[in-house]
Every structure is written in C-alpha cells, then in structure tokens.
Amino acid sequence: MDVSLFPRDMFAELDRLQRQMQQAFEFSPSIRGFARGGFPALNVGSTPQSVEIYAYVPGVDPASIEVSLERGVLTVSGERASGLKGLGPKDTVHIEERFAGKFRRVVTLSDDLDPDAVEAHCKDGLLHISIKRKAAAQPRRITIQ
C-alpha cells in the first residue's frame, strides 16, 4: 500500500480508501455464503436449452426435500434436524452456527420452461435441478435466402 504523504486530492484518497475497505470486506463476511441468502444457498445458471439450479442442502435427507415448479416459480422446501438434539446435561455447546429447522426458498424463473422436463439429482448435500426450456423458446438460427 502506497500512501503519499501529501495527498493532492482528498476525495480521490477517500475513494481509494473506500474501495480498499470494500475489497477487504468482500473476503470476510460474505465468504460464508450461507448467512447471507438463507438456507439453502442457491446458485442459478442458464444455458440456451435449460436453467440449472444448485441448492446447497447439507444434512438433509434427499427424499424429504420438496421441489415444485409452477408457472416459472420454483420452490425448494424441507426441514433440517438440529445436530444439537439429545445433549446430556453436562454437554457444552461451544459453537452453534449451522442452520436448523424448516426451510423454504422460492425462485422466479423465466416462463419459457417446460414443467414436464425437470430433473433433480442430489449428491453430497448438493441438489442439482435442471429444467429444460420449451422447444419453441429455444433460439433458432434463421437462414437468409
């Protein structure tokens, strides 16, 4: 970090400082990913043929997760049991950060999706939902005559 002894422009210096602060923060609190957007954390991506949703659902039995798609609105819901159940009277909880309880997340997706072409896989606590777009909505190359 190079700070000149005599800043020529106070505002430029403040601006630079603010940017540095922002950078520093982006690596600490939001790094947890989970606390920010609730449980489960979601990543959504799209390809020309489909929409891909990744839900991070550690410790949830895949069979108990409910996934529904209705008019372009996707709902992922379920319940996660607390890991702190069944504690003895002399047990001490030192850190308690993991989510416990019922969860429900709703995502609005585009309306060109085919509700009959949904696939969901769950592996290692990562639920991957793939929804195909309707054939008519897929981009077509138009030949010029």
Partner: peptide
C-alpha cells in the same frame, strides 16, 4: 480464498464432536 463452513462444536466428558456443513464435497 475459500468458504468458511458453518460448524457446531459440542463437548462432553469423553471428547468433542464437530459437525461441519460441506455441501458438494
């Protein structure tokens, strides 16, 4: 840079139990 996984740490008379959420691993 890596994510900091949330954990639960519980201590009893015989030892410590740690639970960590590591989805996708």
């Amino acid at each position: 840079p890596a994510l900091l996984p949330p954990v639960d740490v519980i201590e009893d008379a015989e030892g410590i139990t740690l639970y960590a959420d590591l989805p996708g691993v």
